[in-house]
């Protein structure tokens, strides 16, 4: 939304981390798992191709990594800006 530009550097940094994380979230599920699957069909994985692996395994593993990355990064950011509990 256009009106969420908080002057606060902490919030701006948070929004940036969210955007980057969601871009990865989108690419590894909707991208590699669905739309881009034909483009990476050359890479074979166990009887099928990489897109199938992303759709049934890879995307879920990356989702977990993303959430833990976000938690770790935000806890660090909280400390940097002195807003941790």
């Amino acid at each position: 939304m256009a009106d969420n530009s908080s002057s606060n550097a902490y919030w701006a940094a948070n929004v940036r981390i969210i955007m980057i994380s969601l871009a990865i979230w989108f690419v590894c599920s909707f991208g590699l798992g669905i739309i881009l699957r034909p483009m990476i069909s050359g890479i074979s994985v166990g009887g099928t191709d990489l897109g199938f692996w992303f759709a049934q395994q890879g995307s879920i593993i990356i989702f977990i990594a993303l959430i833990f990355f976000y938690a770790w990064r935000m806890n660090k950011l909280d400390a940097e800006h002195g807003v941790e509990e």
């Binding site: 979230w25 199938f52 759709a55 995307s59």
Partner: peptide
């Protein structure tokens, strides 16, 4: 459900886990 269709029903796998990324971040 996945076995019946194969790849096409990967929607359930990605859909029912990917929502947690939205929950955790947003």
């Amino acid at each position: 459900l996945i076995a019946a269709v194969g790849y096409g029903n990967s929607t359930f796998l990605m859909g029912w886990t990917g929502g947690y990324v939205l929950l955790a971040l947003l």
